[in-house]
Design a protein around this nucleic acid. Structure first.
Length: 978
RNA sequence: GGGCGAUUAGCUCAGUUGGUAGAGCGCCUCGUUUACACCGAGGUGGUCGGGGGUUCGAGUCCCUCAUCGCCCACCA
């Protein structure tokens, strides 16, 4: 059986050409010579070669009942239960191989490499937004016909992981230092194998359709090889070098960290004023410091050359208190004469500014603190004290010697290490640095030229500002877990960067290699290679040269080495550059910038086209979600309670260009209710399909008569199809522009307010009439199908489940692999839509009148009058406002009334309190009069009439007219109640 | 010290090229009608943070101030 809809009905002014266009794209002829509309009214994205056939009279055959209609709806709960659905479909998708990209070479790839979560991590709300965003775009692009690869993986996370394992060892009563480097690293690998995959499994619960077969780890052999090659290449080009600098030292983790891995904070502290006597006995000067203990390593005191207070004294020697060492008073641009006494103590090894002074004046640079921030031998009798303890002792001793002038309260800016939350100690040490300036140029260009685009756009400026002021990057870390720096030294300390010890020995020639550098690389150094290395860079012999490469020019050639366990090398050519990078704003510098620099340097091509920066998920009251503050909410619990779809909707529906979103349980309830609504409405539609064979529970009419006459579309059908058409346009545009908020809102409104609240209600009388049910069945089934497809990227599970029930021909195996709905232009019927919306407006007004009379909703009112034209919508008003008869013409009894959309409504009052009605009329009148006054004064204003756009003036005139008319009617009506 | 974002109904947020405001939740009144009470119908609720300016007209454009948040910055 099927439904035949006269195409001439669909388009009011249909003509052969327009039909032809539609048929070309989406329909085929079946055995009976009728037109089969592609699965529910959609054209396929990749059009198959259907020939245009323009039938005379245009009959649509909507074959919705094709054997699948036997679904027993009694099995469907009245509530949607996500737990019964989600894991089932995830397993089926995976078994069907849907997570792998379609190998069809004619399909354009869509590629995303996900931000690799740390192996130490467990899912938090930020992840629950970040990864579904990527999944959403993957699903969307797959439906649009692209070959989608979303490549997952994990980051070894040097410091974080090392800390976790150190903690475990401490619990066992041992430590890394005790068991040694090899044992320690072994231990970390063991931990990684046992519990490092937690988070990836959690991503599955979120429905993420990632290609697990390509999952990568930043310490994989292949990945490691890529890292080494980059290091060696940059080393040989002089971009990586060793240097002595004051770096940010984390005394707890005992490693250096980069500037951007620290956080600035202000703490309440003290400013100490200390007297330094002149060696010649000519009095003293006073310096101010917040870190008095560092004075033990002072090598000078500096003043500004213009500072009159110290005129004639520069060059003299001072006695460094407690240490009784002589240090010079020097002149330098650095001190600010306006601050304190204008004299600054200089401790080059423990302050970046002092270090600069030290370099300028060629001062010695004694190191006072060791890796644990304890005083070294340089501190004389204070040796071995912790920095805090040392401070107390130094201050006490100075006090005792009368050299402490005063102590003031002072807000001290300090640096906190992101990882350990401990105060950073600036420390002079020898580290490896990367000169990013040379690499930044192309990375700036590529963004300026719009080849890499940021969404929201404002982050482009943030990126550019940083890139234009880029500094050296300290890439060495004093850790064991990570990529060990591939530098090997000969006995005389000459460094050779090489892939292996043997390789280094070959480079060193006659000199013997004696050791490898102990440090490992900053984790971001390897993360920066993510889009390249995961896709197979550096490709073997067959890679990168297939002519298919997207590279602008040939990738940089690298030293050849024995081959490494490889990744499909064709991946690089096919999937690089990737299309999208989704990440949060905190790592634009740390990560995004490095990926762009590395991608450009080694592939001569940007690593991705679009960078989407998503919002930070805050708590309900706008606070940061944090485990330690106890303000975090576990996404896994939410998934268990209400399902992944509802959680996804909660977060995705708030995602647009905003920088924060707030998570609250209320919002998840709204999302859960939406799921339930979709579930029940679909259930309702399925129950009303009148399947062949045993009728469903609510189907008493038996199968439709296949030979019955062509179904006719009514305005309300055209209205819903129009709204579907418009919604599809809005949603597509919104997905394309990363405005998920708008997409979700449009889908929600279409489904709930329009399809459920209006269309289904209006369709009920027809659905119960066997001779008229087919058109609304067709419309509903079609709209549900389209709707589910459009919603699928947001809520993959429930849409898949419901789609599986839809008895449509050309039913795809999965909604996930179904095409994106493209609706024929004939659906767009603005005139019919306007008519219907007017009818709804009248209906609402009539309902409102009923409520004024205190009639309960749904209770029949025998008679109402109307004046005006309701067209073919009269029955809608009658049925939707629960009125027995709508009589055209002025009322013959006392009524309350309303005028809306050019229609006067009159409802007999029964025993209504007249004075109340008069009050109401007066209220309305004064409101209308006020509005009219405004309008009239506006129109009396020659400025307005002359300068405003003519159509605006015209509109104001019309509105004035309407208001006058309305006032007249209100006055008439009032008279009836007097 | 600089930059960015936010400030609209009790709450959370929309608001396209300027034409005097919308949604969801909440609240109030009603209500089981071919699905859904995780529901339906009706309603209440806003001088769009303050102050200036441009304009016939400003939530929307410009200036300024305030509050909150985020980022960047070497002041002892």
């Amino acid at each position: 059986m099927g439904l035949h809809v006269d195409l001439n009905d669909l388009a009011e002014d249909s003509d052969g050409k327009r039909l032809g266009g539609y048929i070309t794209a989406g329909c085929s002829i079946n055995d009976f010579g009728r037109i089969l509309v592609e699965p529910i009214i959609h054209q396929s994205i990749s059009p198959s070669a259907h020939q245009p056939v323009i039938p005379q009279g245009g009959i649509l055959d909507m074959p919705f009942a094709t054997g699948k209609a036997g679904v027993d709806m009694t099995n469907m709960d009245t509530r949607y239960d996500a737990s019964k659905v989600e894991s089932k479909w995830y397993a089926r998708w995976e078994a069907a191989g849907l997570f792998q990209p379609d190998p069809d070479p004619s399909k354009r790839p869509f590629t995303v490499t996900i931000p690799p979560p740390n192996i130490t991590g467990s899912l938090h709300m930020g992840h629950a937004l970040c990864y579904p965003i990527q999944d959403l775009f993957g699903r969307y692009q797959r439906m649009l016909g692209r070959s989608v690869l979303i490549l997952p993986g994990q980051d070894h996370a040097g410091i974080a992981t090392q800390s976790v394992v150190e903690k475990m060892l401490r619990k066992e009563g041992t430590s890394g230092a005790q068991i040694g480097r090899d044992k320690f690293v072994e231990r970390v690998w063991q931990w990684r194998t046992e519990s490092g995959d937690t988070i990836l499994n959690q991503l599955r619960s979120l429905g993420c359709a990632f290609d697990w077969s390509r999952s990568r780890f930043t310490l994989d052999d292949h990945y490691h090889d890529a890292v080494l090659r980059v290091f060696i290449d940059w080393f040989e080009r002089g971009l990586i070098f060793r240097g002595k600098r004051v770096v940010n030292w984390d005394p707890v983790l005992q490693t250096s960290v980069s500037d951007i891995e620290t956080e600035r904070k202000t703490i309440r502290g003290k400013l100490y004023y200390i007297r330094y006597p002149f060696a010649d006995g000519s009095g003293h000067l006073t310096i101010a410091t917040t870190r008095p203990e560092t004075m033990l390593a002072d090598v000078a005191v500096a003043v500004h050359p213009s500072d009159k207070r110290y005129e004639g004294r520069v060059g003299k020697m001072l006695i460094l208190p407690l240490m009784n060492r002589e240090i010079p008073l020097i002149a330098d641009q650095y001190p600010d004469p306006a601050f304190g006494s204008g004299a600054v103590k200089i401790t080059p090894a423990h302050d970046p500014n002092d270090y600069q002074v030290g370099v300028r004046h060629k001062l010695p640079m004694p190191v006072l603190l060791d890796g644990r921030a304890r005083i070294t031998a340089e501190g004389g009798i204070y040796e071995g004290l912790d920095r805090h303890e040392a401070r107390k002792r130094v201050v006490a001793d100075l006090e005792e010697q009368g050299l402490l002038e005063k102590i003031e309260d002072y807000d001290i800016p300090i640096l906190i290490s992101d990882r350990s939350k401990e105060a950073i100690e600036p420390l002079l040490s020898e580290q490896w640095f990367c000169d990013q300036a040379a690499l930044a140029g192309p990375a700036i260009e590529v963004v300026r030229q719009g080849k890499v685009k940021f969404f929201p756009e404002r982050y482009e400026k943030i990126y550019l500002d940083w890139m234009e002021n880029i500094r050296e990057w300290c890439i060495s870390r004093q850790l064991w877990w990570g990529h060990r720096i591939p530098v090997y030294y000969t006995a005389d300390g000459t460094p050779f960067a090489a892939l292996s010890w043997a390789d280094a020995q070959a480079k060193a020639g006659a000199k013997k290699i004696v050791r490898q550098d102990e440090d490992v690389l900053d984790t971001w150094f390897s993360s920066g290679l993510w889009p390249l290395a995961t896709l197979g860079w550096p490709a073997g012999d067959d890679g990168g040269d297939g002519g298919e490469s997207h590279a602008i020019s040939a990738p940089r050639s690298l030293p050849s080495v024995p081959s490494v366990p490889s990744v499909p090398s064709s991946d690089l050519a096919r999937y690089y550059p990737t299309d999208l990078m989704v990440t949060d704003r905190n790592i634009i510098y740390l990560w995004v910038s490095r990926m762009i620099m590395m991608g450009l340097d080694f592939m001569h091509e940007r690593p991705f086209e679009d960078v989407f920066i998503y919002a930070t998920v805050l708590t309900e009251d706008g606070k940061r979600m944090s485990k330690s503050l106890g303000t975090g909410i576990d996404p896994m619990e939410v998934i268990q309670k209400i399902g992944a779809d509802a959680l996804r909707y909660t977060l995705l529906s708030q995602t647009g260009a905003n920088q924060d979103i707030r998570y609250s349980e209320r919002k998840t309830e709204e999302a859960r209710n939406f799921c339930n609504k979709i579930w029940n409405a679909t259930r309702f539609v399925l129950m009303n399909l009148a399947p062949p064979g045993p009728p469903g529970p609510s189907d008493q009419s038996g199968p439709s008569n296949p030979s019955h006459p062509t179904g006719r579309l009514e305005d309300v059908d055209r209205w819903l199809l129009t709204r579907l058409y418009e919604t599809a346009q809005t949603v597509k545009k919104a997905y394309d522009g990363y405005d998920l908020q708008v997409a979700c809102q449009a889908l929600y409104r279409f489904f709930w307010s329009e399809l459920c609240d209006w269309y289904i209600e209006v369709a009920k009388p027809r659905l119960s009439d066997p001779s008229r049910r087919e058109v609304p069945q067709w419309v509903l089934l079609g709209c549900i199908d389209s709707f589910l497809r459009m919603l699928h990227p947001v809520m993959p599970f429930i849409t898949e489940e419901l789609y599986s029930f839809l008895p449509i021909e050309h039913h795809a195996e999965f909604i996930m692999s179904a095409p994106w709905p493209v609706l024929p232009e004939q659906f767009n019927q603005p005139e019919a839509t306007a008519r219907v919306e007017r009818i709804f407006e009248v209906t609402r007004a009539l309902r409102s009148l009923r409520a004024d009379l205190g009639v309960t909703p749904g209770a029949q009112i025998p008679l109402a009058y109307y004046e005006g034209d309701l067209g073919e919508g009269e029955w809608i008003v009658r049925s939707q406002a629960w009125v027995g008869e709508l009589r055209l013409g002025p009322p013959s009894e006392t009524c309350i009334g309303a005028t809306v959309a050019g229609v006067d409504l009159h409802l007999p009052i029964g025993d209504l309190d007249k004075s109340k009605e008069i009050e109401k009329i007066d209220r309305e009148s004064s409101k209308a009069r006020e509005e009219l006054n405004r309008m009239e004064s506006k129109l009396a204003d020659t400025n307005f009439v002359e300068r405003a756009k003519p159509e605006v003036v015209e509109k104001a005139r019309e509105q004035g007219e309407e208001l006058r008319e309305r006032l007249r009617k209100l006055a008439d009506r009032r008279r009836l109640f007097e």
